[in-house]
Design a protein around this nucleic acid. Structure first.
Length: 235
DNA sequence: AAAAGTACCAACCGCCGGTAG
DNA sequence: ACTACCGGCGGTTGGTACTTT
């Protein structure tokens, strides 16, 4: 398999590594003339010493018009989290629901922010705990200032986390009590670190974005969830 | 100031499914 | 029905910038 002209990598002397501006220009010109596709014939038509696979990837992930170069917004992060919980590592499917974002970008984002190493360094463990702990302290203070919750069980969970670090520090994964985390742990993505979800949650909550979001957790039946506003097919 | 650790991202690789001949 | 080609996908790697010690 993969014996196609432009697809064969060995023995062809294809250029590898980072793309140069000249190569980008050649690729863009080729696509503007011939449209997307026909990747395998690029090298013969454009003079590019790249295999078709590499050309396609470069176009899709970097040169294609409409790509967003800026950082992911909190809304986009939330969508990624939700869709990953629903679909798993279907990066291209998730990407179709985020216009201007690529599967590679989303994949990288997820791996960087949510799929941490099994055994982080000692220092990182400490930092994760510190971040996690300070997050809950912040949340507690916010609630006290806003006087918004009287949920004793949640309160005691928070106290436990803050006051009993020895129970948590040695572990890579920390359990936590916000709805996002609870949902994610119910799903098959339990390896979400408190630091990451907490950071995201903090942003969303502070920005007032949470209320408009798609989650709808059924507190009467905590083992169940439903999506109030299903996605319209975007692919 | 230097070394070590970490985060981020572009690009490569192998595999798979669809399709044309 | 079979085979080769093509395009796409997900996992992984390597380089670089940034941060921490």
């Amino acid at each position: 398999m993969d014996g196609a002209m432009g697809w064969r990598i060995a023995d062809q002397g294809w250029r590898k590594g980072p793309w140069t501006p000249v190569e980008d220009k050649l690729l863009a010109e080729y696509v503007s003339l011939h449209g997307e596709g026909r990747w395998s014939s690029i090298s013969s038509c454009s003079g590019l010493k790249r295999n078709g696979k590499s050309c396609r990837l470069r176009w899709v992930n970097y040169l294609r018009p409409g790509l967003k170069k800026e950082q992911l917004t909190p809304q986009e992060e939330g969508i990624i989290i939700e869709l990953h919980a629903l679909w798993g590592n279907k990066w291209s499917t998730i990407a179709r629901c985020l216009p201007g974002r690529t599967d590679n970008e989303i994949k990288n984002y997820w791996r960087t922010h949510f799929k941490k190493q099994e055994k982080p360094s000692k220092n990182e463990k400490k930092r994760k705990f510190d971040d996690h702990n300070s997050y809950y302290k912040d949340q507690k203070v916010k609630r006290m200032m806003n006087n918004t919750t009287t949920d004793e069980s949640e309160e005691s969970d928070i106290d436990m986390i803050i006051e009993q670090p020895q129970n948590i520090l040695p572990e890579t994964t920390i359990n936590f009590t916000c709805p996002v985390a609870t949902f994610m742990l119910q799903q098959q993505n339990p390896r979400v670190l408190a630091q990451d979800a907490a950071r995201w949650w903090d942003t969303v909550a502070d920005d007032g974005l949470w209320s408009g979001f798609m989650w709808n957790l059924d507190h009467d039946h905590p083992n169940q969830h439903r999506v109030e506003q299903p996605f319209t097919p975007c692919f």
